[in-house]
Computed example of a mutant assay.
Amino acid sequence: MKNMTIILKKQIKDTLNNKAILIQFLLFPFMSAIMTFSVQIEGMPYDYFIKMFACMYIGMAPIIIASTIISEEKESGALKMLIYSNVKGKEYIGGIALYIVGGCLIGCFMMSLIASYSLLEMIIFLLISLIGMLISVMIGSIIGIMTSSQMKASSWSIPMMIIFSFIPMISSFNESFKKIGFLFYTQQISEMINTLDLTSIQSFHMIWLVIYFILAFILFMLVYKKRLTHQ
């Protein structure tokens, strides 16, 4: 727990010097606010843009932030020093996840306020967002560890971000594509966010997300052990 806290504090401090990371935390909440307040179409739900941008936020921001942080620390040698200091993989990813998920949850909280959700709807919205963000952090962390530089990490992160974030939006307009989108965790997140009702959320959504998280975590631990601790 001590190592996780140290990593968390380090990342918070580094954010002040890394404006690119700060922008990722703020971009989608800001865009959702602009669109919600400026675009009003008859028949369109008030929180339409909140839900749309929330899914994109969950599928994009944690991936690019995690991959950027880890690839940058690999290049600078900071990650190697942590390993030599006996920081375990689960402690390292735990600190990174706390930082990223915490920052993104603040953004989602702002979005829920803009949407004027009730307390129950806000809690459900944040819990669903939390699960999706954890999976995205794992994916971004895997990319960061497997790539040898920030440039390569970005080249891998961008296609992944596009796939995971835009699939729910495309599925909402194309029923045939929705059958393919079902295989992606962001599609499950989208369907749950669009409901925000515990009685309507089906168990297979949660089961699918748990499976995704477990697989992503196991893959991260394998990659962390193979790529870093054995170098």
Rank of each mutant, 00 (worst) to 15 (best):
S38E: 06
L127C: 12
Y57S: 01
Y99Q: 08
I64A: 04
I70W: 01
A54K: 04
I100Q: 04
G103N: 05
M122H: 03
G102S: 08
P62M: 06
I41C: 05
E73F: 04
Y84Q: 11
S118V: 06
S32R: 07
K90H: 13
M35Y: 13
D47K: 02
I63M: 08
G43F: 13
Y99N: 08
Y57E: 00
L82N: 07
I41A: 13
M31T: 06
L119S: 02
M60E: 01
I93P: 04
P62G: 07
G103C: 03
G94C: 09
F53Q: 03
K51D: 10
E73D: 15
I124V: 13
V87Q: 02
S67T: 13
D47P: 05
S85R: 12
E73I: 10
L98G: 12
M60C: 01
S118L: 10
G102T: 03
I124E: 12
Y84F: 13
M56H: 00
P45F: 13
I114R: 03
Y46M: 13
E42M: 11
Y57K: 01
Y57G: 00
S116F: 09
L82A: 06
F53I: 07
L98C: 15
G107W: 02
M111T: 04
L120S: 04
P45H: 09
M52H: 06
F30T: 14
S112H: 06
M44L: 15
F49P: 03
F30M: 08
S118P: 06
S71L: 14
K80C: 05
I69T: 09
M110I: 15
A115Q: 12
I69P: 01
S85V: 13
V87R: 01
A78L: 14
C108W: 04
S129E: 05
A54E: 07
C108D: 14
M110C: 14
T68F: 08
C108Q: 15
M111P: 09
F49K: 07
A33H: 10
A97R: 03
Y46K: 15
I100R: 04
E72H: 09
M60G: 00
P62S: 15
Y57N: 00
A66L: 11
I106A: 09
A66Y: 08
I63R: 02
G89E: 15
G102W: 01
G107E: 07
G107I: 03
L98P: 05
M60R: 00
I69W: 03
L98T: 12
K74L: 10
E91W: 02
C104E: 00
N86I: 09
L127D: 07
F125G: 11
F37W: 06
G77V: 08
K51F: 11
A54Q: 12
I106M: 10
M56F: 01
L105F: 13
L105H: 02
F125H: 13
L120F: 05
L120E: 05
G89L: 12
Y92P: 00
E75W: 11
Y117D: 12
I50M: 11
L113D: 10
I124Y: 12
S112C: 11
T36Q: 04
S76I: 13
F49S: 03
G77L: 10
I65H: 02
P62E: 07
S67I: 13
E121H: 11
A66S: 15
G107A: 10
I114H: 04
K80H: 11
I93R: 03
G103V: 02
I93G: 02
